[in-house]
Design a binder for these strands. Sequence first.
DNA 1: ACCTATGTTGATAC
DNA 2: GGTATCAACATAGG
Length: 249
Amino acid sequence: MPELPEAERARALIAERALGRLISAVEDGDGYVCRPHAPGELAAALLGRRLTSANRIGKMLWLETDGAGPDLGLHLGMAGRIAIDEAPHERWDRFALTFDDGGRLALRDKRRLGRAVLAPDLSRLGPDAAVATRAEFRARVGRGGGAIKARLMDQAVIAGVGNLLADEILWQARIDPRRPANELSETELDALRRAVRTAIRQAVRKGGAHTGALNRHREREGHCPRCGAPLSRARIGGRTTYWCPDEQR
DNA sequence: ACCTATGTTGATAC
DNA sequence: GGTATCAACATAGG
């Protein structure tokens, strides 16, 4: 499920439950999830340290540690979540920290597209979608000839919006996802930014990007929850997209 | 069995 | 450079 709202919940969970605990063991043996690190590298950097802060931009999390060590970057990928002090899951825990009190923080990820890395590169992320200013949003999102939906989901443009959230946002803002980004007016971009902020705020509160009003209608044969028109479906920005052809222009 | 689908992202090709 | 496509992974469902 991970988009910005899920990442924020994970960040808050870590901040609340994991900070200050002494790391006594590190499971970093999954060379794919921990790439480019070799097994043992994360352990060497993290053993004996304590997490001191949990941070996030978009979908990327990074945890600072005491001492001079590198930050620990965590990404939930497509199906990951953070499990703290839960019973270990042998198959799906791709990375984990054990604390000296016997507790444990695991990156639990069926699909293995999550990541755990040292010193994560944040330089290629745009501003967090929830806090981008109006000027930033206009300048960054309203550019390029590609579809506005693809632009919204480009993490280098603004960070945090994924497929479900993008459909919800465009539906709320009544904008056709196929419109070229650079053809949106400033008024439309401002409305879009408002929809981004509202959708994210609600999703964080309600528990995830899948809680949007459009979401349960996002299926073949689905209908617009506002006007009842049959939803259109197409592949935009490489992702399956649903929208209301009557209301979204 | 085989095909499609799935919340992400990165590499690659044009 | 900007944009589009595909592959990486694992699982579920028709």
